[in-house]
């Protein structure tokens, strides 16, 4: 039934779901950010899995290597990681400011404040 030969994709799906779950179910803003990071990491893994070529070597030119893994997804994901880092940094900075303004980083507490 379940093809375990593609186990990396199952890991991607498991990480994706747990990340999304943490993002939605947790009230603490920091935990939400952690969930967001797990969610993003699962997509990074998806791209890297796509770039893998069976029996392919690392994409570095060498004299007697015939097949290489596809380096392009790695490059793309490098960019996406940078974007993710920037997002996390901004999110954390906002969480600090929210804590300063409200004295709490719990979503439910923030919802109860009217202003």
């Amino acid at each position: 039934m379940i093809d375990l030969g593609l186990y990396n994709y199952w890991i991607v799906i498991a990480l994706m779901m747990s990340g999304l779950y943490a993002l939605i179910a947790r009230g603490n803003l920091i935990r939400k950010l952690i969930g967001l990071n797990i969610f993003q990491a699962s997509v990074f893994l998806l791209y890297i899995s796509v770039g893998f070529v069976r029996d392919g070597a690392a994409p570095i030119l060498a004299p007697d290597v015939e097949s290489y893994s596809n380096p392009l997804p790695h490059v793309l994901i490098l960019t996406a990681i940078v974007v993710g880092v920037a997002t996390t940094a901004l999110g954390l900075a906002l969480a600090v400011r929210i804590h300063g303004a409200y004295g709490s980083i719990d979503d439910d507490v923030l919802d109860r404040q009217r202003d």
């Binding site: 939400k32 993003q40 997002t87 999110g91 906002l94 303004a101 923030l110 202003d115």
Partner: peptide, 22 residues
């Protein structure tokens, strides 16, 4: 101060959107 919360929530949802797109 509500602006901070609005920004944070947009950040979470916006990033989920961008990641779906990705």
């Amino acid at each position: 101060r509500r602006a901070l919360v609005a920004s944070f929530r947009y950040l979470i949802l916006g990033t989920v959107g961008a990641t779906f797109f990705l």
